[in-house]
Every structure is written in structure tokens, then in C-alpha cells.
């Protein structure tokens, strides 16, 4: 750093062992970084509770991601300093896995990349399906597109790379893997995830509240079903 640069500029606040790292995100937001997706879920839950208790403004938005929770819409320095102090004292814990609502997603496991995923896992495709459907998933966060949920629950050793060349069009309802995440494409879009199956469930509907079926904290299971005759292709 050059000597002319103010010392605190963009630096993370000093991190107590095991406590969140608090990073500035401009004047109205901050980013709290923790060590695992379980801790993200726990921190998000605790922050939502603080908001319910009126300790965070009603218009503050909480946006969880892989290792962070964004707190956006802070109105003044006092709210920021109170929150920073609270985060500095936050005890890392894991969210209780069984607390969110449970959604079952009927899935036809016939994705174009199923064979490749099975090869990466070193098992036959039927076994890959059995393993995926046996997992309990939880929505860690949403992003990429409205209603696109990043689901955790697949063991780390099942992580798969994204496709070297993304597809220009992935059909709505595609069930796909990237890293250790599972996702379901809410609408047709380009995408680089490995497609393992498809569902007819409508994940995104702006006439519904909430519009997204899979919101952070929701528990998810994929239930293998046989393809409906004549329903091959886009599942909407």
C-alpha cells in the first residue's frame, strides 16, 4: 500500500478467531464473511430474527451467498456500528437443518450430462441417480436468475466441474450440478452446469408469494419419477 492511502480503506475489520469478517460494501452496506455454508445459514437466520425484533430497519435487505451475507440498506453510521459490533461478537454455529419448509421435486433423471457425472463419480448412472436422490438439500442462496437456488447437501467429494463450454440454451426445469451445488433452472437460459435431469415443477411464478418456490433455508428432496410419455424435452 502506498503511504498516501488511508489505512482503513477497504480493509476488513480485525477478525476475531472464528468470528465473521466484516467487509465494507460502500456507505449503505456491509458484507459478513464466514467459514462455511452452514454458518451462512445460521448467520442469515440470526440476522432475520434481529430484523423481526426491529434491531435492523424494515427496508434492509439480507442477501446470502456462498460464504457471505450481504446487509444492504443501512441508513446511518449508528446502525452500521451497532451491527458491526454485533457481528464481531457473533458465535459461529450451524443452522438447524430441519427447520425450513420441505419441498419435494419430482425429477426425471435423464439429463444429457448424467453419464458424464456418473463417470466423474466412478459409478454407473443408476447409482449416481440413487445417490443424488438420497441427499437432503437446503437452499443456501439464490442468484444467477430470479428463483435460481443454489442447493447444498451433496457431499464435497461429489463436486463436479462446470462444462468447459456452456450451453447457449438450457431448458426450464433442468436439474443440474456445478461444484457441490445442485440447481434447477427456473426458466430457459444459457448455462454451464451439468444437466442430470428435469422437473415439471414451476419454480418461479410472479403471481405467487413468494414468487420463488425455493427460498433460502428451504429443504429440498429430489424424487425420481418416470418420464411422462410425450413430455420429453422442455418441462413446463
Amino acid at each position: 500500500m502506498s503511504g498516501a492511502e488511508p489505512e482503513a480503506l477497504g480493509r476488513a475489520a480485525a477478525k476475531a478467531p472464528g468470528r465473521p469478517t466484516v467487509r465494507p460494501m460502500g456507505a449503505r452496506a456491509l458484507l459478513a464473511e464466514v467459514d462455511s455454508d452452514e454458518q451462512v445459514a445460521a448467520l442469515l437466520g440470526d440476522l432475520m430474527q434481529r430484523q423481526h425484533q426491529g434491531l435492523l430497519g424494515p427496508d434492509v435487505e439480507l442477501v446470502p451467498a456462498a460464504r457471505t451475507v450481504l446487509v444492504d440498506g443501512l441508513t446511518d453510521a449508528r446502525e452500521r456500528s451497532t451491527l458491526t459490533a454485533w457481528l464481531g461478537a457473533w458465535e459461529p454455529h450451524s443452522a438447524q437443518a430441519g427447520t425450513g419448509p420441505l419441498v419435494e421435486i419430482p425429477t426425471v433423471y435423464d439429463g444429457e450430462d448424467l453419464a458424464e457425472v456418473a463417470r466423474l463419480w466412478g459409478v454407473p448412472p443408476e447409482e449416481a441417480v440413487r445417490r443424488h436422490a438420497a441427499c437432503s438439500f437446503r437452499v443456501a442462496f439464490c442468484g444467477f436468475a430470479p428463483g435460481f437456488a443454489y442447493l447444498t447437501g451433496l457431499p464435497d467429494e461429489f463436486a463436479v466441474p462446470r462444462r468447459a463450454t456452456p450451453r447457449t440454451r438450457v431448458p426450464a426445469g433442468s436439474v443440474a450440478l456445478a461444484g457441490a451445488y445442485t440447481g434447477v433452472y427456473p426458466g430457459p437460459s444459457p448455462g454451464g452446469w451439468q444437466l442430470i435431469g428435469r422437473t415439471a415443477v414451476r419454480l418461479w411464478d410472479t403471481d405467487r408469494t413468494p414468487a420463488a418456490m425455493l427460498t433460502p433455508g428451504t429443504r429440498v428432496r429430489f424424487v425420481p419419477v418416470a418420464p411422462t410419455p410425450g413430455a420429453k424435452g422442455e418441462a413446463t
Binding site: M1, S2, E5, L9, G10, R11, R23, P24, A27
Partner: peptide, 16 residues
């Protein structure tokens, strides 16, 4: 440009 979370991802000279 107010402080952002990932300044430490950039080369100090480039940032300065």
C-alpha cells in the same frame, strides 16, 4: 469510490 469488500484482491500499485 467508497471502500469495497475485495480491495485486497488487487495489486497494491495498481490500486494506488
Amino acid at each position: 469510490l467508497t471502500p469495497g469488500p475485495r480491495r485486497d484482491w488487487f495489486e497494491p500499485e495498481s490500486l494506488a
